[in-house]
Design a protein around this nucleic acid. Sequence first.
RNA 1: AUCAUAAAGAGGUACCU
Length: 336
Amino acid sequence: AFMWNTMIRACVDMNQSRQALWLYKYMGFSGFLPNNYTFSFVFRACIELNDGLLGILCHCQVVKLGWESYDFVQNGLIHMYAVCGCVSSARKLFDSSLNRDVITWTAMINGYVKCGEIKVARELFDEMPVKNAVAWSAMINGYAQVGLFNEGLDLFNDMQLEGVRPNHAGIVGALSACGFLGALDQGKWIHAYVDRHKMELDIVLGTALIDMYSKCGCMDAACHVFDEMPRRDVYAFTSLISGLANHGQSVASFDLLTRMQREGVRPNEVTFVCILSACSRIGLVEEGLKIFESMSGVFGIEPGVEHYGCLVDLLGRAGMLEQAKKVVREMPMEPD
RNA sequence: AUCAUAAAGAGGUACCU
C-alpha cells in the first residue's frame, strides 16, 4: 500500500487528480486496501476536482474500512466537505467528532468562510479552545475576503495581544486589509515587523507588500520591495504594473512588461488588463492597439470581454467613438 | 516507510454619479 500511496500522492502533487483517483480504483482491484494515508491524498484529489459526489463515495469506503475516526482521515473528510460546498455535511462530522484538534476547528471555520458565513465562522473561532497561528490567519483572511477589513485588522492586533506570532498568511491577510483601507501606517508597521523578525520575503509576502504600498500610493516603497525579492512571478509583476499604471507612471509599467519578458515570466490576462488601462490613462492609442494585437499574436492569450472593454475605454477617451462602437459590434462575444 | 489533513498574494475601482 505504501507504493500505491506514493504514486497517488505524486499524481495529486502534479495536479493529475483524475490519474490519482484512477490509481486509487486500480489499487482496490489489485487487492490492496487503502489506509489512512491513502485517504488523505484521495481527498485532496476530490477537492481539486471539486467533486463532492466522489467525496461521498470515498467517505463510504472510509466507513467500510473503519478509518473514520482517525484524525487525519476525519480532518480530511471535514475539509473536503467544507470546501466542496457541503458545509452541513462537514458540520455533522464536526459535531459528532470526539477528537477535534486545531486542524478540525480550522477546517470547519474555513468552510464557513468559503460559503460567506463569516459570523458563524467567528463564533466557532471564539469557541475554539486552542488557537494557533494558522487558525488566526484563517479567520483574518476570512474577514479580508468578505471585505470586512477593519475586523480583520482588529483580529490581527488581538492575535499579537494574545502573544501568538503571526505566520506569513496572517501577515499577508493583514497587509491586504491595510491596502483596501489605505492604512499606510499600519502597513508600514507590519513591514517593519517582517524585517525585525527576519521573515522570509517569499513571492506571496512580497506581492502583498507591493500591493499594500501601491494601494496606499507609495510607489517608491513598492518598487523597493519588488527589487528586494529574490524571485518574482506573474503576480508580483502584475501587482507592480497595476500600481504604476494607477499612479500615472504608465511608462514605467511598460518597461516592467519588457523586463518581465526578459526574466522569462509570462504575462497573463490580468497583466494585460493593467497594461491596457495604463494606455488609456495617458491616451496611448497606437501603443494600446499594438499591445492588444500582440496578446494573441505574441503571447498566445485570447482577449476576453475585459480586454475589449479596455479597448473601448481607450478609444472612447481618445474621442474615437466610431471606432469604439465598431469594436463593440465586432467583438467575438456578448458585451457585458 | 509517505515534509500524509487546516490558512495566504495581483486586475480598468473603466463609463455614470
